[in-house]
Amino acid sequence: MSRILLIITVLFSFAVKGQNNTIAAGEKLTFTASYNMSGLMTDLAQVTMETNEVKTSKATLLRLRCKAQTYSKWDNFFKINDIYETYVNPTNLIPYLHKREINEGGYYKKMQYNFDRGLNKVKSVKTKRRKDGTFWSENKNLTIGSKTNDIVTTIYYIRNLDIHKAAIGSSDNFTILFDNEETSMKITLLSKETISTNIGKKECYKLSISLNNNDILSGENNNLLWLTADANKIPVYAKFKVPVGNGELKIQSATGLKH
């Protein structure tokens, strides 16, 4: 009897953990991305995180879309227009399709992942543009871990974690599929602090992000993320350090929140 109870408890706890209690369709978060130039932060781009309901004849999915676009004053020098989007199950944020389209100063790249969760397989299509304007594609079939997700799903998944139950100093590992490779990411809860943002003074969870086998984000505790310590867990501020410098992401507005 106790064994049955234990199994039910374990199953129930996983079900609760997997449920999406944070992200709703119609949410829009807008950020300003700044880069440190000679000690002064310079606003470079606008980053938006948007969610929408997408209906097909068989299902209703949630589209998680992140966009990065340089401010028009930079466009003549270096234009960036990146779109990262994932179509997930709205109840548990399991991804089905991920698209990443990069347009950076003439450089173009598109990655598409079609997830097969049952078999832990991903059909990957990489498309690039040649110098003469023509495109070429590369198809690959990848085998991934059962908990591996794309970058967009991982960001939203972190927001959906029960951080209030975690102790200061505790950490969690996530595996991200990026450029056809699985990369391990470690998130550590550093502290709880109150910071001033454009959407008001917010009590936040201060998290540190580090990539284990990748040098995109450099150093320990150099890449920090502040999530509001409420039911919405909005990312309001982020500091990042890359090999060519450092920058920050500040929230400008948040609309359509679930709570």
Binding site: V54, T56, S57, K58, L61, N89, Y96, K99
Partner: peptide, 19 residues
């Protein structure tokens, strides 16, 4: 963007979600 969204919707047609 509109064209890309329409293409994506076609790709998603075969997906049946559980839960």
């Amino acid at each position: 963007q509109k064209q890309s969204d329409e293409e994506t919707l076609e790709e998603l047609e075969d997906i049946e979600i559980d839960g």
